[in-house]
Design a protein around this nucleic acid. Structure first.
Lengths: 128, 128
DNA sequence: GTAAGTAGTTACCTAAATGTAACCACTTAC
DNA sequence: GTAAGTGGTTACATTTAGGTAACTACTTAC
């Protein structure tokens, strides 16, 4: 191992420590990158409530179009949050399922829900 | 047991409660409406880390332009998350401060941070 | 055979978010 | 007087997200 390589490895280590210890900004921006947008979390929540079918999810989140739902479901599948299952029944049955990984989002979703309720109260009292 | 594992176990418990509750969708969409977008939460986090000045915040969140930061700060002020203070010093001093209300976001921000770290680990191991 | 429901796809278009660059006024350091 | 730093604003351009409507293909009910 050359001096330069050693030096480089050392730099990489220091950099890793720096980025991990320093700020919450990195991880938070990572999270927002994957979860961001208007629909991803609402879709996961709709599924948490027991909806497995395209139409069910679309009706649960009124205002979402088929096109957007279709696109977001693909993204969520790519990111490992959901699985698309095709059943070889008479009218071919399709079900979306949450993966184990989605469980790790529990705290995020609960926190958002609680805060949403709080905020709703705040806005309500501001009007009176 | 690591902090992240503890957090994860806690998440799973919370998650179980969530599925029993009826519709979380409303409050969650309310929350996302106010907090949504690429920058609002990162700005609040940058300020939580002690940054009070326009330039400091902009340097902390590299990649954000002055125009967007300026616009988002106004939105955050309108929504009661921050206060803009002008000090009548020689070069006029301007400070942004978090309000009490922002404290209520604690759980959301911590959850996002923890999940971001977890996700980063997952992505890393997927590459190996 | 006609309507309605399943699960989407496609093309087209608009609106919102974000980026780029120039510019303002003011102050301090050199 | 020139550069660099404070804290922005403005006009313009581009990118992306999202919406609308039409269409596919297949099934069940009437």
């Amino acid at each position: 191992m050359t001096e330069i390589t050693k030096q480089l490895n050392k730099s990489v280590e220091l950099f890793a420590n720096l980025t991990e210890c320093k700020s919450s900004l990195g991880p938070i921006q990572d999270a927002l990158y994957v979860l961001g947008g208007k629909w991803r979390i609402p879709i996961l929540v709709a599924m948490l409530e027991g909806n497995k079918h395209f139409g069910e999810i679309q009706r649960t989140i009124s205002k979402i179009s088929a096109k957007v739902l279709s696109h977001e479901l693909k993204e969520l599948e790519l990111n490992g949050f959901i699985t698309r299952r095709v059943y070889d029944t008479k009218p071919v049955g399709i079900e979306y399922e949450l993966t184990e990984y989605t469980n790790s989002l529990g705290a995020v979703i609960v926190a958002l829900r609680e805060w949403g309720l709080l905020h709703r109260e705040k806005v309500k009292t501001e009007w009176n």
